[in-house]
């Protein structure tokens, strides 16, 4: 431990400590607790049984009172560590509880009932992962369906976004034509009008197109992202025009120039947009909430919200499904962290 501590606190250049160093470290450690803590807590909690979740104060790890099968009893009985009157400590199972007295028995000799005051016994606890929190919602509730819907929306919307946006960006970066500035201005203008402002008329458009309560109604309004067009256009502007000219001399058609030359070369930007698009669509909430009314069509986010909004919240399921719905994003982040952060830092989009 001390080795780690010195590793972490050792400063480059070996300069002496300044009070701002201390402040910075306090900030970082507090940040670690505050940012990571809740997620870790969610993860730990998601493996607790319903009974363990309702305990207060809560335990850190998913403990469970050990249960023992005892001859002569159909149900397994909870195991307790009991401090006997003579000071001896024994492991007993509880047969039943009457008032402040528990009737207990030795699991080896269950015929003899021992009466013990409640205060003298401590449950024997063992770590147990309640994996049924994860499996049951998929089996008993619609979560498999939600999961599938989310995947469908995310994948299809991202593919269409990439194709449409890159085509438009190509036209806007590599061709001189009348009205180019106007088109750019229109796209720029729509940056100012986020979805939250046009939900009412968009809702009626979706209804008019018969897309209400359909996954396509969730997908289509999101695919023509102005940010995507701008991101790709900015990148394509840096591809030298000479390459296109060389391709034209090589008898390549314009379409071929787009997908054999420009698109492969714009891959870094396309990849950034793909990552963003996946995250946007996976996390979308307001619009799917509006468009989807049929339970069968809910995405994970909407399904999760409706599940947690029920009168009797089944937290053990909610927590597990929360973990499931954040897992893809966490995995993406783990592998593409550098990509995402540098993408955001250079483009300022999210």
């Amino acid at each position: 431990m001390s080795g780690i501590a010195t590793f972490l606190t050792r400063r480059r250049g070996g300069a002496s400590w300044h009070f701002t160093d201390v402040l910075a470290w306090i900030w970082l450690v507090a940040g670690l607790l505050l940012m990571f803590g809740p997620v870790v807590w969610l993860g730990l909690s998601s493996f607790k049984t319903r009974a363990a979740l309702s305990e207060f104060p809560p335990t850190l790890l998913p403990y469970e009172t050990a249960m023992v099968h005892v001859e002569g009893f159909d149900e397994p009985l909870p195991l307790y560590r009991v401090m006997m009157e003579d000071g001896e400590e024994r492991l007993l199972v509880q047969v039943r509880r009457i008032g402040t007295v528990a009737q207990m028995a030795d699991p080896e000799a269950p015929e003899e009932i021992i009466r013990v005051p409640l205060a003298a016994r401590q449950p024997v606890r063992e770590i147990k992962l309640a994996t049924e929190n994860y499996s049951t919602p998929f089996k008993r509730y619609n979560f498999l369906r939600y999961f599938y819907n989310s995947v469908f929306v995310t994948v299809v919307a991202t593919i269409i976004t990439l194709i449409f946006n890159s085509m438009a960006a190509f036209a806007l970066s590599k061709y001189e034509f009348k009205g180019r500035t106007a088109v750019l201005a229109i796209i720029l203008a729509t940056l100012m009008v986020p979805l939250s402002v046009i939900i009412i008329p968009l809702f009626s458009v979706i209804n008019g197109l018969n897309l209400f309560n359909s996954l396509w109604g969730v997908i289509l309004p999101t695919v023509a992202t102005p940010t995507g067009v701008f991101l790709l256009r900015q990148y394509m502007l840096t591809i030298p025009d000479e390459l296109l000219e060389a391709a034209r001399m090589d008898h390549a058609s314009e379409w071929k120039i787009y997908w054999r030359i420009v698109l492969p070369l714009a891959m870094p930007a396309v990849a950034v947009l793909a990552i963003f698009s996946v995250m946007w669509r996976w996390n979308d909430f307001l619009w799917p909430l509006i468009v989807l009314s049929d339970q069968e069509l809910y995405t994970l986010q909407v399904g999760l919200n409706s599940f947690q909004g029920e009168l009797n919240v089944q937290w053990h399921y909610v927590l597990a499904m929360t973990v499931v719905s954040m897992l893809p994003v966490v995995v993406i982040f783990a592998f593409l962290q550098r990509f995402i952060t540098s993408g955001i830092a250079s483009t300022g989009i999210k």
Binding site: L243, M249, P264, L265
Partner: peptide
Amino acid sequence: AMVFQSYALYPH
């Protein structure tokens, strides 16, 4: 056929 100053070889 043209040879460009920057060569304009397709980098990918």
